[in-house]
Design a protein around this nucleic acid. Structure first.
Lengths: 174, 174
DNA sequence: CCGCTCATGTAACTGGTTACATGATTTA
DNA sequence: TAAATCATGTAACCAGTTACATGAGCGG
């Protein structure tokens, strides 16, 4: 019934509660993936919907003159989050991610050989430049003892390394 | 200007031409990722748009009484495809894929420990079941000499293995 | 000739986006 | 006190989905 974004919002509120809708937006904006922008037009109506459906509840922050509200999960919200996490998981097709690099490389043959190398090279550069940032996030999460965040950062790191390994293969075979 | 889907359609037509809009749909439907469904409501209007903008051209298949049309890339279409492939690539945020598994695992702490293991276990099972299929696609592409398809399948394989490696880590640290 | 696949199409909807706007609060 | 950030909101739009519908071509 709820979309992945809505479930993710429940999850973020579960982690950050009590928190504002704005804080939820920031989480998406800071995410390394551009999949969800965390735009105001998406988040505020979505959160109102979740509150209307009693999955979130909110209270005004005392002494705050803008409409700032602090959200928490209700029991129903926690149940919805759990139901989403629990098996059965979606079919594999829903687990295989869409790699924007892969869809490009698929058509690389449309470019002359020299330009192909340039594309692969630039992709490698961009990903390699990104590595230190991910690594520092891994370190930071580990030293601060934030295990879930540590695992997520590890996931990103492993995924980026896999992309780099694949790009190396692509570069080798043209 | 054009979306990723539109560019991907240009790419598919470039590979398969001359081909029907239906053939393009089938490519998306057979793709291991569920990101684009290849639904009729997406593809047919999109292809008409591309033809209107002179990026595709089409001809009726002779002796065919349904409106079946065979599409090809125009010079402009090939140029648009190349421009999309060529550097500059999108920023890293556009290169990092959204892993649906990762967004779930992020909130795994909402589940009691025993259930967490079950989630990780099921994800591993589903991905492992999927491996033989990918491997056979790799073999098939290699023996048939279809280098681009070989590289794509390799990409999927590497990505799935990376997910499995990560899941193993997740399982180890709870 | 029946059923499956090929082939195209549309209407209603959904789940987001961009862009804009407003105003409170904090910080330099 | 100005600038940056926090915080909420909406209107117009867009890209894609689901679901439905139609009919030709083809293999058993």
């Amino acid at each position: 019934m709820l979309s992945d974004l809505e479930h993710a919002v429940l999850g973020i509120v579960w982690i950050e509660q009590p928190c504002t809708a704005y804080a939820v937006r920031v989480v998406f904006q800071k995410s390394p993936s551009a999949h969800w922008s965390g735009s105001a037009g998406a988040i505020y109506p979505l959160i109102r919907r979740l509150e209307r459906d009693r999955l979130l509840r909110s209270a005004a922050r005392r002494g705050d003159k803008r409409g700032t509200r602090l959200y928490r999960l209700t029991d129903g919200g926690l149940a919805a989050l759990k139901a989403w996490l629990r098996p059965p998981l979606p079919p594999v097709s829903g687990l295989i991610n869409m790699d924007p690099l892969r869809v490009r490389i698929r058509f690389l043959g449309a470019l002359p050989k020299r330009e192909r190398r340039a594309v692969v090279g630039e992709a490698q550069d961009k990903l390699r430049e990104f590595l230190p940032q991910v690594k520092s996030e891994v370190r930071q999460a580990r030293t601060s003892g934030d295990t879930p965040q540590y695992l997520i950062s590890r996931g990103v790191l492993i995924s980026v390394r896999a992309q780099l390994a694949w790009l190396a293969e692509v570069g080798r075979t043209l």
